[in-house]
Nucleic acid binder design. Structure first.
Lengths: 359, 359
DNA sequence: ATGATTTACACAACCGGTTGCATATACTTC
DNA sequence: GAAGTATATGCAACCGGTTGTGTAAATCAT
């Protein structure tokens, strides 16, 4: 006699998936026994366990995630929303893939699913967080590209939804009491300082910083690091060399054109990201500069393509794969109620000197 | 008197989310009435509906996805797994972000979640599909980077799990009966032919094709398109100019070095992807070539960075955002049992001529 | 005023798992 | 051999929604 079948109408097809009840019936045991057997509960006899497990495999039994989640009240899913998927404002940034690579890999290792969505902006920004966390779509969220008074952080903190951060301010970082949320950060301010110092060490006096809007912490921080370096070296900070802009290649391109048309143009450009640096390089070249020879351009992030550009791009490499892994580890720990002693991890970017800043 | 609270132990915190039962109790109605009211069921009185909806909003009620999915037997989730997240073999490809941008955007529009994972390779390749579809984590799968006799396609077809394809062979495409799975494709073979013809029209006789392994359809197809162009123009197809390789920048770099060391080196290089073209450009430049002046390099895909390279890279732009959107539309239609009459969409790549192939 | 409809809601089963508790059998122990 | 303790499994409630069906009150027709 056939067990109760789970029939799901999907499309025109009738998809039948084996349920626990069917496995149990095939084995001639109760549902609960089957459930326990499949989780190697010692209360179940060894031979019964093996029999049930064999049968489950034969029947291609796969537990229904929704059913399991319903009483576990956990989904074993984590979510991330990114602005970089939002073409209208940012444009696809390769940096995101590298982050996702680390995240998906580590999540899979822990048997977690990863939910990906675009980050909405404006009025409905919080909707995705409400829906996904409030509705038990995921257990926790990875928040990136934080900004001052970030409403997302306020919301998740207030609701006590598990979350981890990437992209806080270096200053805020140090005040762990005010901001107890776990985070993984790359010391982006120090990185920007080191990068700028590298340019200074090459003899550059007029160094432009491009790409900093005032929205995100990392924009502010990198600009701050740039200014740190200037003041340490007693170089004047010319506001005309530190103009804000958007975050796409095109923005880097246009801003650099503008800079080079100035009366007293810069001899070096520090772009806030490799993506912007690519645009800057093009503009510089079109303006007749020889990059790496009297004119320097460097970026930040360390995207894979950077090493193959012409000339290869000096940059500050973020250990982005590690960041992804650590974010996931941290988030899962928080979800499981086992937050590690050290909830705040500050990694260092690495200065990678290539030909775009030689001479 | 307080309603039954749903308390979830997450981390050290006690997170309480409002349940339907609580909303119902607050409104003094039955659970079923509340459920119907929230879905605007006409069976419920207008004023009752409004009262319940107001209350639900006040209580920040968000329906529990697992509970809902459990009896709907649908998850409103779609999944995609990509090899491009697998750093060991591919390295982060910006192309993926652009695809994901289209996918996440369109999915959100239809209120679908997107599940992202790495594509395993080898023996356990199918595990992710079994788990995610068999276990009701998602309703359907977007399959990319298909290869001949793809076991994933066989599996999903046999199980009748909803799926859509991107990256089939141009030849297979035409035989819709053998392969009824819906797909969205870019005519990559025609694109490669057009690209090669572009190089031929510039006077190049020795055109190398780099990057084609023999694994994926798109590798085979692009090589086939290249060969199509040669034979149409009665140019000899020198096997020494069509060497296989991997798919990273580094592979493009090394293979180009190798090609340029040959006795009779090519004067133009057609790279299978923009990512490879970037590596090829570097190698060519290091070998003393002036790209765009006597030596041409072009790529395929149309990643955003291409326009800003030095020189700007000629390429075949895939309408990747559209591909993502259409894949999602198609997949959702299949899931809902409303497959459109036209389940097979063939888009054309667009030749974008830039300075890397001038002269 | 009475029977037939309609309207608006309640009741309870169900989706597919998990889990506390009860129970039956086997095994000790004296 | 009776009482006590493990051991192995069954029973039923539960997670939080959805949905088929039953029913009381309200509206209508006669």
């Amino acid at each position: 006699m056939a067990g109760k079948m789970s029939r799901v109408q999907i499309g025109e097809q009738l998809i039948a998936r084996t349920t626990l009840a069917e496995v149990a019936q095939a084995a001639g045991v109760n549902k609960s026994t089957a459930s326990r057997a499949l989780r190697n509960d010692p209360a179940i006899g060894v031979e019964t366990q093996q029999r049930i497990q064999r049968l489950a495999a034969q029947l291609n039994y796969v537990p229904n995630a929704s059913a399991r989640r319903l009483n576990n009240a956990q989904t074993d899913t984590l979510a991330i929303a990114s602005r970089a998927l939002n073409q209208s404002t940012v444009g696809a940034d390769p940096f995101l893939v590298e982050l996702l690579a680390g995240i998906t890999d580590e999540a899979a290792r822990h048997h977690f699913d990863v939910l990906l969505s675009r980050a909405e902006e404006g009025e409905h920004e919080l909707n995705v967080y409400k829906r996904i966390l409030g509705g038990h779509h995921a257990d926790g969220f990875i928040l990136t590209d934080l900004r001052p008074n970030d409403p997302r952080l306020d919301y998740l903190s207030a609701k006590r939804y598990p979350h981890v951060l990437f992209g806080r301010s270096a200053e805020d970082l140090r005040d762990a009491r005010r901001y107890p949320s776990p985070w993984v950060e790359v010391d982006t301010r120090a990185g920007a300082r080191i990068g700028t110092e590298h340019l200074i060490s090459l003899g550059h006096k007029r160094i432009a910083f491009i790409g900093g809007g005032d929205t995100f912490f990392y924009e502010r921080d990198r600009r701050a690091g740039y200014l740190d370096a200037l003041s340490r070296s007693n170089l004047p900070a010319d506001p005309a060399l530190c103009l804000p802009s958007g975050l796409s290649q095109e923005d880097g391109y246009q801003l650099t054109q503008q800079l080079l048309r100035q009366a007293n143009p810069p001899t070096a450009i520090f772009a806030i990201s490799d993506v912007l640096a690519v645009g800057a390089m093009r503009a510089a070249r079109e303006a007749g500069k020889t990059i790496g020879l009297g004119f320097a351009v460097m970026g930040f992030d360390g995207i894979g393509l950077g090493a193959y550009l012409t000339p290869p791009l000096t940059t500050l490499r973020q250990p982005i794969n590690d960041v992804g892994r650590l974010l996931v580890q941290l988030l899962i720990a928080v979800i499981r109620g086992q937050p590690p002693a050290e909830k705040h991890l500050l990694l260092q970017p690495e200065l990678v000197v290539r030909a775009s800043t030689r001479g």
